[in-house]
């Protein structure tokens, strides 16, 4: 099991990224967090292309749906179609509670769907719950599986 977890947060709202980092700093101080603000950057990061050629592979991705350039569902579809990225668990973290967004996310292979809470207390609680389950309990695929050509 890898001791330091690498998390990628994909969100176009810097305030939300800041909140997530703050929440995770409290419950998972050893977690290494990277963030990008649009779907094109997300796929570049995950595939370690361009500016991200030396990026560390992510163990887990928290993905917003409404993103500039390339939306969250397109990023999810690209990840789950890629043999190199398919295994990485993806948590959809979105304010949308529309049943079609939830259903489409699962159809495309999202590992779970968490509605982004509107208030601070619930936001921190959601982050803590994500951290406890995915970093404390779940077995995550080894990074070698994501880098194997």
């Amino acid at each position: 099991m890898n001791s330091v977890r690498h998390l990628l947060i994909v969100d176009d709202n810097p305030a939300d990224i800041g909140l997530a980092c703050e929440a995770l700093k409290q419950c998972a101080p050893s977690c290494q967090i990277n963030s990008v603000e649009d779907g094109v950057e997300a796929l570049a990061f995950l595939n370690r292309r361009g500016n991200y050629s030396s990026a560390l592979p992510a163990d887990l991705v928290i993905l917003d749906l409404n993103l500039p350039k390339r939306g969250g569902l397109a990023v999810l579809a690209a990840m789950k179609a890629s043999p190199d990225l398919r295994c990485i668990p993806v948590i959809i973290f979105s304010t949308s509670q529309l049943s079609q967004d939830v259903k489409r996310s699962y159809e495309l292979g999202a590992n779970c769907y968490v509605c982004k809470p509107g208030n601070l207390v619930e936001y921190f609680a959601a982050m803590k719950s994500i951290e406890q389950f995915w970093f404390g309990l779940a077995s995550l695929p080894p990074r070698g599986e994501q880098t194997k050509q």
Partner: peptide, 22 residues
């Protein structure tokens, strides 16, 4: 403890695919 956390995460935190609307 594991089962408790599974229950909390998947039945409370997670949004299942079939919502009230669906």
């Amino acid at each position: 403890k594991m089962v408790k956390l599974i229950g909390l995460y998947w039945l409370v935190t997670n949004q299942p695919p079939l919502t009230a609307t669906a």
